[in-house]
Design a binder for these strands. Structure first.
Lengths: 155, 155
DNA sequence: AAGATATAGTCCAAAAACTTGACCGTCCAA
DNA sequence: TTGGACGGTCAAGTTTTTGGACTATATCTT
């Protein structure tokens, strides 16, 4: 069998991982756009995924999302301009800032968490709860068995 | 528990998929670089993953990798300049081209397939062959249950 | 307490990546 | 045999990421 056909019909772990990640992302942003969050793009996911009600530092966001600090700063700029987050001083460290969600930011957090839960539940229904739980555990182990990004600050 | 902590400690499907995909990619390119393929970047993966000994069309590559034709053309330009592929006429259709791997291209295909197999086997050893097989099957279903990219040409 | 060093975040310029729209040649079906 | 679709490319513009430098504050060492 031709390699390209094989990769399509019996995709390897790399191909599968890329596909799953792209499709989950796509689904989330499609739904978000439908519900009025049509000004956020996939890039913003790096921040939105880890935003915190109590505020979180840019550097911490960068670490969690595997981006460097400059990129994260640029994404935050945009989300601030779009009205999803505010920069506030961090009382614990005067060098630092806290990225705090606005009202709209809180709503997109809640909504996107719901989209992911929907995807997870739909998959759980398809596979059965037991198999889904096993799948999820295996996914965690798979990710954990490989080294992380190694950007500026690393998690 | 804070949302950001929760996302780190009990990552959802979206986070896990992104992590796995990034780490597998990273691992492959790190190993490739070690073995002398230090001029390919992650971007080139879209082509290298689907290259074919017998040649494959740019449009087909674009479909498989979920990029549009222009992006694919640019990646092919680079890989051609780097000596991994050649553009040849397609005897079956005078509009079309065939992207054919060079000697070096063949070597990187073999090598990267091996890296992925190594990752898969290491994970299989960690989980046990049965659980790994189940994991892989679930991954296929998960990816298949979500719509694909929807670019220019779509698969 | 002072100085050295590290850390948090930002600015700027450049490189890399992707998108949009147009275009030419070839195929194919009415 | 002509009109529309397809395969691929070109060129321009936008978005995204990177690399290097810089300020301010914190922390560590003596």
């Amino acid at each position: 069998m031709r390699r390209s056909t094989r990769k399509e019909q019996e995709p390897d772990l790399g191909v599968l991982a890329v596909q799953l990640s792209a499709r989950v992302q796509r689904e989330i942003f499609a739904r978000a756009a439908e519900q009025g969050f049509d000004d956020v793009r996939p890039r913003h996911g790096a921040v939105l995924a880890y935003l915190d009600e109590e505020g979180i530092r840019p550097g911490e966001l960068a670490r969690l999302a595997g981006r460097n600090k400059q990129t994260m700063g640029a994404i935050i700029d945009e989300l601030e301009r779009l009205g999803y987050v505010r920069r506030e001083p961090d009382p614990a460290d005067r060098r630092a800032r806290l990225i705090v969600p606005t009202e709209r930011g809180l709503r997109v957090m809640v909504a996107s968490d719901q989209y992911v839960r929907d995807i997870e539940q739909s998959l759980s229904a398809r596979l059965g709860a037991d198999r889904y739980a096993e799948f999820r555990a295996a996914l965690v182990q798979a990710a954990a068995s490989l080294p992380a990004s190694g950007h500026d600050t690393e998690g």
